[in-house]
Structure formats: C-alpha cells, structure tokens
Design a protein around this nucleic acid. Structure first.
Length: 552
RNA sequence: GGGCCCGUAGUGUAAAGGAUAUCACCUAGGCCUCCGGAGCCUAUGAUCCGGGUUCGAAUCCCGGCGGGCCCGCCA
C-alpha cells in the first residue's frame, strides 16, 4: 500500500481498460525530463498496426475527466503524461492535515523480527560490524514506519570457540588487569598468538566449551561476566548511534533449556554420524550440528534460534555479513525442507568494510572501532559548528555536533548499496558536505527557519505552481513510492538517495524562489511547499538515522 | 578448482530492459546590500573486455578479466 493516493496505479487502470495487454512496467516514472510518467507503447504499436496518434487520442478521451493529468503528448514510441502539481500537493497534504505527521499505513500489522549486529562478544564493535547495526536499525525503522510490529534481536554468541578462547586467554594472561573491554581485547589478541606456539591451549578451550555446556558454575560465572562487560560496551556504542536492541538471546540458554536438543531430536531421521559428530547433508554438503564430544555447534544453535523466532514472529529478517551466505542457505534448507517451517524468512547481506591498509580483524588488532569513528566525527563537527555559530553556548554547540556526527556516520554507511564492498576512508567518512547527512540537515534547518519567521498564518496552497515549484512538489510526491520500495525490498539506501535528490531539488527552489518576500497567493503556496518539504524530510531522515535539527 | 556478490568520469556513487546515463568529491572559473554560503551556478570527464537475446542493454544470457566472500567437528 502507498502512503499517498496512487496516481500511477490510477493511470495504469485507466489505460488497461482500453488496452488490457499493457503491463505494469510499461508505465514508469520518466528520468529524462520528458514527462512525469511515460507509457512505452512499443508493443501496442507493433501488435495492433495502429498509429501512435490513435492511441493518444483514445487515451486522452478516456482520461478527459481526470484532473490529476495535466497533459498528454507523444514522442517516438512514448506517450508522455505530466501530472497536475495541484493534485499531488493535495495528496501529500491530506495525509498530514492537522497533525503535521504522516500516519502509519497498516492497520493490522504482522509481527516482525529484525536480527542485526549479533557480533561476537569478544571485543569492541568496529566499523565493519557497525554496518550491520546501521543497516539493521534502518530496516527496523522503515518497517515500523510502515506499521509493522517490529522487534530487534541480538543473538549473543557466548557458546562458541571464540568466547571460550577469550575466557582462557583472560584467565592466563589478563587476570591481574581490571575487567574492561580493552583489557579483555588485549588478552584475546595475546591468546590468539600464544595458541600458535602452544597447541595445548586448544585443548583447554575444548574443555572450557564442554564445561560451559555442562553448566559448571565457575566457568558459567566467568564467561557470563566477560560477555556482559563486552556486551555493555557494544551497547554503549549502539546507543551513541541511537540504535536500540529489544531482545537478547544467549546461545547458552538455548542449550540449557533443551531447545538445541529438541532440534537434534526433530532431525533424528536425517542425522548422520562421523566419528561421533552429527551432521545433516544436502547435495553432498555436510552441515555439522555437534562435535564428536557432543558439544553443540553454531549451526544447531542457530536452528534452535530460528525455531524460536518462527514461533513468535510472522516475518523473520536477519542482517548478516556476506560470509554467512552459505550458512543462511543451510538454515533455510533445514527450516523449510527438513523441519517444514514455512514462515517468511529473509536475509539481508552486506559486504565487508576494509581499511586502506587492508582487512580488519579483531584478533589481529587491525581495526578502527566505531567509537573511534564517532569521537573523531564529533570533534570535526564541533570545530565546524563552533566556527559557524560562535554566538551559541558550549552545551548547545555540543548538542548540535553530536547530532551532526552521528547522523553523518550513519548516513555515510547506509547510503551505500549493501552488497557493495566498502573501503573505509577517513576523509569520506568525516565529510560534512556534498552527499552527506549535514547537507540534508542544513536544508531542513533552512526550511524550519522560513516557517518560524512566517508563523502559522497564510499557509495556503493556492495559485499556479511555477517551474521551480512543480519539480519540488513532484519529488515530494515520489516519497510514497520510495518508501514502498525501501520497505518491500529491504533497501534503506533507497531512502538515503531519495533524500539527497529531494534536498537538491529543494535547494534549487530555495535559491531561486523567494518565499517570505513574495505576494499572495505565491507566498501562501510556497509556504505550504516548504512545510510539506520539512515534514517529508523529517519523516524520511529518521528512517536512515539522520537527526534533523530545527536550528544548527 | 567449485559456488555467491561486485566492476559506471581521476575518486566515490545513482539508475523498474526505455528517450540526451544521476549526483557528489577533486580540478578550473563564478555567486553573500537578498528567506541560514554545511549552499548555488558554469565547465571538463564514465557503463571492465568479447559475443548473444531484444524495436531498445549499465541492466538479461554466455565466455573472459579484475576485486571481495565462502567451500571448518570456527562463527
């Protein structure tokens, strides 16, 4: 469903009543400036042995009573429709009449689970992992915006080899240090090196895993404590970015409450054995569920987790790094083909972020943490805002810098198509002009400023839309379609790119089209345009993690 | 070796199989007696290569080339 009245659909239906063979794709928004919507009449022309003029005149006749159409012309095999900005403006405005806020769309929403982040609690969150959180949180916001009941989920991997290795490392090399994420990270990295020299350490890790699954108190307390410390600092980072996790599910809980065993029981007929280790197979691929000592593997725990999610949600979305693609395929196979769970399950993958100096690895120590990025972004923003707004108090400067920095960081990451690799560059991440969040925020602040000065009166969309106004109205009207595409395709970058286009269009209007100093009816109409712009930016910006400010 | 993803101006990116391929950064010029210059205007510059499908291909198919990821009783 669309946020605004769907004129494109209306047009398609009218044309179909004359030419039933016209497909949805034959009518599309035009990007070349010839029209607002274009009908590609190539197949009609070939099949029907008719002239384009005939088609145009039939369509024109059928649409003669429709005031949302401003003109119909043809060129080559295209039939070009321009839309009446007055009607588009009405469609936008009617949705926010009285509230200044666009409503949610669904009445009876599905329950949706969005799992994101879920990074191993073995160190601080770095800029590669934060891509997961940023994409996931935007998907959460977009689906919530649409009216779904969305819960965000974090799967805490406290039962794997990595955490057990951290635990052993901390006991051996870090116990005299205070229990902080930094010291734990040091111990983890040291452990990673020591294991190469002393393979006996691996055996201790194995033993730790066994003891943890068996519920040995000392190990349980130790691992839980360590994970909680690191999770706390990961959470702190997420909070700085305005990202909230609703539910944490600990892998070890699924082992101890029997869910993992239930998975093994359900799969009993499919299980195969290799030296005591259990696996299922498909197409010659073995997917191991347990080790030969009976301890569980990530795969079986993740199946148990998906069972839990299927029980509680109508739509499951997992945001995963591209290295999980095969794993995700296996999960889908087991859930659907072996366990016959047909719930809606979608994966959103993202490619990795690397540094100019190469790949990031937590164990190897070559990382830029998300906190480091945020700190530098805040510093940068503070310098700029202090320079531009020297009259403001320090607390106000800091508030603005925070908003600018977190918005800029999130936007920088979310605007890129998630399956493109990203090479992190400080100069790009800290850029506050061009295709950036502050560019959007600044235009918003200008719109806010105009409306403040105008007061509440005289906002009336009357008179004719000029050639700087109509393009902005049409761009605003597009929001309904962009939001729809972003939600159905789980593509937050579509909103990000739309916001940039919308803002550019507004800036063009702003520089060339006086609002406050113009006469009635232009003034009232332009104020209405500015107000709609401001409302749409506010609505869309939130979805991609931009905190707009009334003043900056 | 096999599988998946990505190749668009110097750099980064956009583009329902559709018309003259988007925008930003960089570079060279220009715009503040005028609603907020984190802005605007002008100029230069691109679809990896070779085939195919189609009235029409950046987009779909096949074959190369380059980069990433995966092919663990790791996660």
């Amino acid at each position: 469903m669309l946020l605004f009245e769907d004129y494109r659909k209306k047009l398609i239906e009218s044309i179909r009543s004359l030419y039933p063979e016209v497909r949805d794709n034959d009518i599309a928004p035009d990007r070349t400036g010839h029209a607002d919507l274009a009908l590609r009449a190539f197949s009609l022309l070939r099949k029907g042995d008719v002239k384009i003029e005939e088609i145009v005149s039939r369509i024109t006749g059928a649409l003669s009573g429709e005031d949302y159409i401003a003109s119909i012309t043809s060129s080559g095999g295209y039939i070009n429709f321009t839309l009446n900005p007055k009607k588009l403006m009405e469609a936008i405005s009617s949705e926010i009449y009285g509230t200044d806020r666009f409503p949610d769309i669904f009445q009876d929403p599905e329950r949706v689970s969005v799992e994101h982040t879920s990074t191993n609690p073995t160190g601080p969150i770095h800029i590669g992992r934060i891509r997961n959180s940023i994409i996931g949180d935007s998907i959460f916001r977009i689906l919530s915006r649409y009216g779904y009941r969305v819960t965000t989920q974090y799967f805490v991997n406290d039962s794997g080899r990595q955490v057990a290795s951290l635990y052993v490392g901390y006991k051996k090399f870090g116990q005299s240090d205070s229990l902080t994420t930094e010291n734990l990270l040091k111990a983890y990295q040291r452990m990673h090196k020591e294991v190469e020299a002393d393979p006996g350490l691996e055996k201790e890790v194995d033993e730790t895993i066994r003891q943890y699954e068996a519920g040995k108190q000392e190990v349980m307390d130790g691992i839980r404590t360590i994970c909680s410390v690191i999770l706390g600092s990961i959470n702190g980072t997420l909070e700085r970015l305005g990202i909230k996790i609703d539910d944490y599910t600990w892998e070890s809980d699924l082992i101890r409450n029997g869910d993992v065993n239930k998975v093994l029981e359900s799969l009993e007929d499919e299980l195969e054995d290799e030296g005591g280790a259990k696996y299922v197979s498909s197409g010659g691929r073995k997917m191991f569920l347990t080790r030969n000592d009976g301890t569980s593997l990530y795969f079986s725990r993740d199946i148990a987790y998906h069972q839990y999610k299927m029980d509680n949600f109508d739509w499951i979305i997992d945001v995963l790094g591209e290295n999980h693609k095969e794993h995700a395929g296996h999960i889908r196979y087991v859930m659907k083909d072996l366990l016959h769970r047909d719930g809606k399950l979608d994966f959103v993958f993202y490619s990795y972020v690397s540094l100019e100096s190469g790949k990031m690895t937590t164990r190897g120590g070559n990382i830029v943490t998300a906190d480091e990025l945020l700190d530098r972004a805040i510093e940068e923003s503070l310098n700029i805002v202090r320079n531009k707004r020297s009259e403001l108090q320090e607390s106000e400067l800091s508030r603005i810098a925070q908003a600018v920095a977190t918005s800029a960081v999130r936007f920088h990451i979310v605007k890129l198509n998630s399956n493109k690799q990203m090479v992190f560059k400080w100069s790009e991440a800290l850029s506050l002009e061009g295709d950036s969040a502050p560019f959007v925020m600044y235009s918003y602040a200008r719109a806010a400023s105009i409306l403040r000065k105008a007061g509440d009166t005289d906002i009336r969309p009357e008179g004719d839309y000029g050639n700087l106004e109509a393009p902005l109205v049409k761009k605003m009207y597009e929001y309904a379609y962009v939001l729809h595409d972003a939600a159905s395709g789980l593509k937050p970058e579509a909103i990000a790119n739309y916001l940039l286009e919308l803002t550019r269009t507004f800036n063009d209007f702003y520089t060339n089209c006086p609002v406050l100093t113009s006469e009635t009816p232009d003034r009232g109409r332009r104020l209405a345009i500015v107000r709609n712009f401001k409302n749409i930016v506010k609505d869309a910006a939130y979805l991609v993690g931009i905190n707009v400010l009334e003043e900056m």
